[in-house]
Structure formats: structure tokens, C-alpha cells
């Protein structure tokens, strides 16, 4: 479940900016969730991920050579 409203559990795509090197594969695999700034670094969406998003986000997380992306569960 991407969003469990009973528990208020949300999943968000997040980027570790220290690890990120701006390779750019995330923006290709999850174009709906990731756009790029003027220097080629990813700006990831702050919205909670639905099931469709989650597949793309998972692919982007797996593909990142720098392991800079992750999916965070948060309760709000």
C-alpha cells in the first residue's frame, strides 16, 4: 500500500544531495517525479507516492549508480 490513510502513512521519494552526482537516470525513469535544476541535479516531487508513482520511483531508486535516492515512509 502506497498510502494507508488509516495510519496516515505516506511514502515520498527523497534524494541524498551529498551522494547525488547528477547522473540523471532518475529523471529518465521517473520523469513525472523528478525534474532537473539548472545544473542537472534532480528536484524530486514532495507529493506522497501513489501506486503508479511507486513503480517508477522504485525503478529510479534501483537505477541510481550513486545510491542517492530512497523512499521514505512518513506519518503525516
Amino acid at each position: 500500500m502506497a498510502r494507508d490513510s488509516r495510519h496516515g502513512l505516506n511514502r515520498r521519494l527523497r534524494v541524498n544531495p551529498v551522494a547525488c552526482d547528477g547522473v540523471g537516470i532518475c529523471g529518465h525513469l521517473a520523469a513525472e517525479l523528478v525534474r532537473f535544476d539548472s545544473w542537472g541535479y534532480p528536484i524530486v516531487t514532495e507529493r506522497a507516492l501513489d501506486q503508479r508513482d511507486l513503480n517508477r520511483a522504485t525503478a529510479a531508486v534501483a537505477a541510481c549508480p550513486k545510491r542517492a535516492l530512497f523512499i521514505q515512509d512518513s506519518r503525516y
Binding site: 544531495p17 547525488c20 541535479y41
Partner: peptide, 8 residues
């Protein structure tokens, strides 16, 4: 360390 800080 962070691209957006370094370049931004």
C-alpha cells in the same frame, strides 16, 4: 558536497 549548494 551538494551540487545545488555548490553551483546554486
Amino acid at each position: 558536497q551538494c551540487g545545488p549548494c555548490l553551483f546554486g
